[in-house]
């Protein structure tokens, strides 16, 4: 559905309205167009500024793609707009085009934006019911393989990756598993590989862990340090943290499971479809695809190529 909006497009009152022939050089023509962009009611100004912001965002995305090769042109606009505005605000800049200038001329600013765009605030065992379903319905299948490869793209700061590692370790499968945890941003990968998480989160994580059917004391997994809860290095032993860009890189292996939860919500439907092709080609027959609780295969173009393992928890298996 197209965004319906009022009074866009060419406006009819022009030079003729002030008694001059259209295109009169005295009147300038262009000046009138400029006037019409701004000399309007407050409501129209709101409309104009929204339209202008869309143009600025498109220009910014094109510029950072051409200059840095970072391609966010197919990111979902709502969240992207919010993050760009927030970055501009933090930089003390009032417009998106002002932000574009700084991004292009100040590499550190670009790095801050990259971090903004890859940090997603999640928690260990977010959606405990998902982990319970994964434990009960997916692990028995994975156990039939002599060596298990799992891909966790868009891993951000690693909360989900370590949750998977705990799950596999408790099922006695971790020793023969490798988890490939990838993200576009090296900064979040560095945080993830440190395996240190805020102490104040441990209560929430413990509750989630228990709700997910964990049968140990969650506190066995970490020691409290001055800088936070340091997780058992053994959990990281079979995790490979690596850079990978879902929007532009190809697959790099075949995986028995792809766990990609709440990552594709930041992509538009076209990029979602492209990434679904990537996952499909990375899975063997019976390979498992796990999505976030409000994501579905509906726009993937591959609805018919998976069967449902757990509908509510969005776990699918390649036919």
């Amino acid at each position: 559905m197209a965004r319906w909006s009022a009074e866009q497009g060419p406006r009819t009152e022009g030079p003729a309205a002030v008694g001059l022939p259209a295109g009169s050089p005295l009147n300038g023509g262009r000046e009138d167009e400029l006037d019409q962009r701004w000399a309007k009611s407050e409501l129209d100004r709101a409309e104009t500024s929204a339209e202008l912001e869309d143009i600025e965002i498109a220009a910014l995305l094109e510029a950072i793609y051409r200059f840095y090769g970072a391609d966010f042109r197919s990111y979902a606009r709502g969240s992207l707009r919010r993050r760009l505005r927030r970055r501009a605000e933090l930089e003390g800049i009032t417009t998106i085009s002002g932000l574009q200038e700084r991004l292009l001329h100040d590499r550190a600013c670009m790095e801050r934006l990259l971090a903004d765009l890859s940090i997603n605030v999640t928690s260990m065992f977010r959606d405990p019911a998902f982990y319970r379903a994964f434990r009960e319905k997916v692990l028995p299948h994975l156990a039939t393989y002599p060596f298990i490869r799992i891909w966790n793209p868009g891993c951000s700061t690693g909360e989900e990756t370590y949750s998977l590692a705990m799950l596999l370790s408790e099922a006695g499968l971790y020793e023969r598993t490798r988890i490939y945890a990838t993200d576009i941003n090296a900064g979040v990968l560095a945080v993830a590989s440190r395996a240190v998480f805020p102490l104040e989160k441990m209560r929430e994580y413990t509750e989630n862990y228990l709700a997910a059917g964990g049968d140990r004391a969650f506190s066995e997994y970490y020691v409290s340090g001055y800088d936070g809860a340091r997780f058992d290095p053994r959990l990281a032993r079979n995790i490979v943290f690596a850079r990978h860009n879902l929007a532009s890189d190809s697959s790099f292996n075949e995986f028995h499971a792809v766990v990609c939860r709440n990552v594709m919500i930041y992509f538009d439907v076209h990029l979602q479809r492209q990434v679904h092709e990537l996952f499909y080609s990375s899975l063997p027959r019976l390979g498992v695809l796990a999505l976030g609780g409000k994501e579905s295969l509906a726009f993937s173009g591959r609805e018919e190529d998976y069967e449902t393992v757990d509908g509510a928890e969005r776990i699918y298996r390649k036919r």
């Binding site: 197209a2 965004r3 606009r77 709502g78 919010r82 709440n262």
Partner: peptide
């Protein structure tokens, strides 16, 4: 999630 409306569809975000 945060729930956003963009054009005629929903977008979710975990900001």
């Amino acid at each position: 999630y945060h729930l956003l409306i963009e054009d005629g569809h929903f977008e979710l975000s975990t900001e």
